[in-house]
Amino acid sequence: MFSFERGTFLGEVWIARFSLMNAMATTVELSFYIIVSGTLLGALLGVVLVYAAWPFRLLVRVYVDVMRGIPVLVLIFFWFFGLAFFKIHVSAFWSGVMAIGAFCAAHMAETVRGAIQSIPQGQTEAAKAIGMTFVPRLWYVILPQAARRVVPPWVNTAVEMVKATTLLSIIGVVELLLATQQAVARNYMIIEFYLAAAFCFFVINFTLSQIGAYLERRFAYMRY
């Protein structure tokens, strides 16, 4: 049953082990950079959408709507070929991070905007009433409460981003899907290898949703 002979599933996995492990690491790294940069930029843009003067709001609104309205794949091509066209040399890995990160930021911005706006006006007024200025009000009163509301949709977006990294196989980033394709091209074990890849993605995303669930429990005391 557990045969590592050539031509068996485990044997073929064993042969491709370094390629697959590197690819898994690449997928995790891509996801990490995309989610972290997307979250930070998205939080900033979300704050702008709620509080900034209208020209800034308009600018960010246009950015968010354009990003959300374009297929991720088109964004990826735009960054990868677009930057090359302007003779800016960026690797496929990093242009992928920038493309999906920009997409992620747009989604996060909307999430953060919604979370901030769902906090009762009384919270802002109470902070004002003790004399707090805008930045401390945001930092100590509004954002900690918004953070809790952001968690469930944040997990959603993060999971989508992990899955979106597979699109980078098209511009030659050897992430999990491309490495799987390469292995399949050698051994024709299509079902087995794609199932294995699916399982790996599931593990990454399940971890993410567990982190989300932990954060939700952690913030459970924040009730009205």
């Binding site: 009433a129 004399g131 409460q145």
Partner: peptide
């Protein structure tokens, strides 16, 4: 300015009908 108004608000306490405690 926001800063000046905030400094003045700090000298006047306000208690709200709906408490508005910080839940976190």
């Amino acid at each position: 300015s926001e800063r000046a108004v905030s400094a003045q608000r700090a000298r006047i306490g306000f208690v709200f009908q709906s408490f508005n405690l910080f839940p976190h």
